[in-house]
Nucleic acid binder design. Structure first.
Length: 517
DNA sequence: GTACAGCACC
């Protein structure tokens, strides 16, 4: 009888898609007293921590109300937490297991919790887990060993990955692919190539990882050579190439590969679509983008958020803000920081500074947390629209309220902001007190502003700094392009000669063009 | 009853 009831409750789970219906099943289980059955309890926990979305809190409570959770229950909760927003919680449960559980962790526990450390990217946690695995003899388990390799790679430590790989008592194609991927993740092309040619067996995954390593390193020709030599190609091979070509500025080739994919009768997946749309956005291919949009609508892929974001980006970058807005408004589900950022970028590029700030405020009100790239977009909006105070305030809030450390690009936006407003000394002082060393781009931005506002003394100083940063760069081309612009605008060769003399510049090959003005 | 490797939007 008990067996029958157990079977009945478990069969109900098969069609259970929502937390609401799950709670009803749980109520039935409690009513029949089946919650004491470890098998039923385990299945319930598995369902709400893995199969249902947004039910992790309930899984947590379910776990807490279980007097003596078995190893399966611990593993299941850890597994659910690994893929959650805070994967670091998975190691807390693991620690709890070490301290309080009657049953010690097994190979599954290690595989899951190590993946959590990888997702969290915390070397210290990963290292401690590795030690635990060693202590308990799980390091020789092939699944655990392979996960340790990936964990170290995610923590940017491919040297440790290699050491673990070298010491593995047995290896399969998955462990070989894991060490290959480790080099790829850590941007070590030579290491990846070394492994690839040393591998005793290569499957489709190995080749796809190698393709990804080539395109990531900008070696488009090597990627194409490998791709053409592959007898079997899957969706990942195609999408790696299309996205890789788009990221390396080979837009026409990205379009060609996409057309070829369609000609072969394959359905492009979301990665190929985002790749080809990224090529459209960067090259300004609005019409091709619209064509892809039509395809996306027709094939029912319009619900994929990455594709929607890529479409939005095409319309934003091409300056068709009404179309961008309509994609943005009609987006299914909650808009992510990426969607908001794309829309803000579009407004910023068209010079709608206030509009961009309004949207940025709307974003915050809707509860979406801006990331570092959102701040680049909004700071650009401020500098293009001359909103100095606003830009300044947003920059300080970025660190204080959002805990985002400014990167060189954020600093670049600020230099541009002050520079465009003619606050040259402020811009210079800002650069000098930056906690990270200024790059040539920073100095060139400032130099452009100095020449625009004809501050010769500061321009001289900035030129010196620029040459110190990059000995091959005198900054003359920045000054020249400004002077050429001046010549073109004012058609005034005397002014040009005067500007060049003031900036103590020599005649250059371009000089003859100005002579003719 | 559970697991290891691949492409991913701003």
């Amino acid at each position: 009888m008990i067996k029958y009831q157990q079977q009945f409750c478990l069969s109900l789970l098969t069609n259970c898609k929502t937390l609401k219906s799950f709670k009803q099943i749980h109520a039935q289980v409690l009513k029949k007293g089946l919650d004491a059955d470890p098998f039923v309890a385990g299945k319930l926990l598995l369902h709400c921590s893995i199969n249902l979305s947004d039910s992790l809190n309930y899984a947590y409570r379910l776990f807490n109300y279980t007097p003596n959770p078995d190893v399966f229950m611990y593993n299941t909760l850890i597994r659910g937490l690994v893929e959650s927003e805070n994967p670091q919680n998975s190691s807390c449960i693991f620690t709890h297991m070490l301290r309080y559980s009657h049953s010690p962790p097994d190979s599954f526990s290690f595989a899951f919790v190590l993946k959590g450390a990888a997702n969290f990217g915390c070397l210290e946690t990963g290292f401690q887990l590795h030690c635990q695995a060693l202590k308990r003899g799980f390091n020789t388990h092939i699944f655990v060993g392979t996960t340790i390799i990936s964990m170290y790679a995610e923590c940017r430590n491919v040297g440790f990955s290699r050491k673990v790989f070298d010491e593995m008592p047995q290896r399969n194609v998955v462990s070989w692919n894991a060490i290959l991927t480790a080099y790829f993740r850590c941007d070590d092309l030579k290491g990846a190539e070394g492994v690839f040619y040393l591998m005793p067996f290569r499957d489709l995954t190995s080749k796809n990882v190698m393709l990804a390593a080539y395109v990531k390193a900008g070696k488009v020709d090597l990627a194409k050579e490998l791709f053409l030599g592959m007898l079997v190609k899957d969706d990942v091979s195609w999408s790696t190439m299309i996205l890789g070509l788009a990221h390396n500025g080979c837009y026409d080739e990205a379009f060609d590969y996409f057309r070829e994919l369609q000609r072969l009768g394959r359905t492009p997946n979301e990665v190929s679509l985002t790749g080809v749309l990224s090529a459209c956005a960067q090259s300004g291919a609005l019409e091709f983008g619209k064509l892809i949009h039509g395809f996306v609508e027709k094939s029912g892929l319009v619900f994929i958020s990455s594709v929607n974001n890529a479409l939005l980006d095409v319309y934003s970058k091409c300056g068709t803000l009404d179309l961008a807005r309509s994609v943005f408004e009609r987006m299914p589900g909650k808009k992510s920081a990426v969607s908001w950022t794309s829309m803000i970028t579009g407004l910023a590029m068209q010079g709608y500074g206030e509009g961009a700030i309004r949207l940025f405020n709307e974003m915050k009100e809707s509860g979406v947390r801006p990331d570092g790239i959102t701040f680049i977009a909004i700071l650009k909006a401020c500098s293009h629209a001359g909103l100095i105070e606003e830009g300044h305030e947003i920059f300080s809030k970025m660190t204080k309220e959002y805990g985002i450390n400014p990167t060189i690009e954020h600093y670049g936006c600020m230099v541009d902001l002050y520079g465009r407003a003619g606050q040259l000394q402020k811009a210079y002082d800002f650069v000098v007190q930056m906690p990270i060393p200024p790059t040539a781009i920073i100095w060139r931005t400032l130099l452009g502003a100095c020449s625009f506002f004809e501050d010769v003394d500061l321009a001289e100083l900035v030129k010196e700094r620029l040459t110190e940063t990059d000995p091959n760069n005198s900054g003359d081309h920045v000054l020249l392009s400004n002077i050429y612009a001046l010549a073109g605008k004012q058609n005034n060769v005397v002014l040009v000669r005067k500007s060049m003399a003031k900036l103590k510049m020599k005649k250059t090959p371009g000089w003859s063009v100005i002579d003719k003005v």
